[in-house]
Design a binder for these strands. Structure first.
Lengths: 134, 134
DNA sequence: ATGCGTGTATTATCACAGTAATACACGAGG
DNA sequence: CCTCGTGTATTACTGTGATAATACACGCAT
């Protein structure tokens, strides 16, 4: 059963997008697979301390994007095929890197300088995240 | 006289923030210095094809953040000192890289993989940006 | 002095995100 | 059977970003 407890919400981005992104991440990490059940709308709302209607909006999006299926009132399940996996991977990696590169180039950072900065700051961001596989 | 003609607006972020960011970039690039004049609110609105009130909102922000000064109805000018420059540089580089790293680590990308991806995609993003200094 | 462009302020409208309070049909489990 | 949780839908309200149409005081140039 997929959980939303770990998810920290920011105030910049729409909450329902952040919730959907969380599910996409879990899929990409292999921690959510076809057939895995999701908590009910009301349960997720409680976990994230947000309104059930906002959760419903996230489900509407996830169903439209194809990786969540809902049958009657029996709850929702994950669905992933190769095409969906690729789409998600593309969004979460290629798009992420591309937008980062664009921002970096807009302030004239050189490739070398970017690698320096990423090197310097990489481990600082992992301090609360030790013990993962390299 | 600083211009806003080159600036392309996206639909994700608030327009007044994008306008302010544009000015910050010009400061960081050395293309806007203390004393440089900015176009009038109405002129910028025309350049960006947006509402003058939205521009005024950007000016309110830029004045609050300290790098734009406005005197009476004589227009606005850039103001940069060392402290402001550092703040802007920090926001546009350190924060950019840090948030990128966080996103990358959320999907378990390794440092090595990130450098690979940035290497692969770096030049593709410069195709319309040739001839800059390394 | 008289315009005119300036910065500034006010009011209104619209769309979207989010919250809130319900309502209802369905289906499993007591 | 019947309750309970489910997904779904509706209505209303709030705050914010953006647009729109004005209004006004100031200062410079004609």
């Amino acid at each position: 059963m997929l959980s939303f407890y770990g998810l920290k919400l920011n105030t910049r981005d729409p909450v329902y997008l952040q919730a959907a992104l969380h599910v996409k991440r879990q899929i990409l990490l292999g921690e959510a697979q076809s057939g895995d059940r999701l908590p009910s709308r009301r349960e997720i709302a409680a976990q994230l301390q947000i309104n059930p209607n906002t959760v419903q909006k996230a489900f509407k999006l996830m169903e439209d994007e194809g990786y969540v299926h809902t049958v009657g009132n029996q709850g929702s399940v994950i669905y992933v095929d190769e095409q969906i996996r690729e789409t998600i991977e593309n969004e979460l990696t290629h798009e992420l890197v591309t937008e980062f590169i664009q921002s970096a180039q807009e302030i004239n950072l050189s490739f070398k300088r970017v690698v320096e900065l990423v090197s310097e700051l990489w481990d600082r961001e992992r301090e609360d995240d030790a013990g993962r596989k390299e």
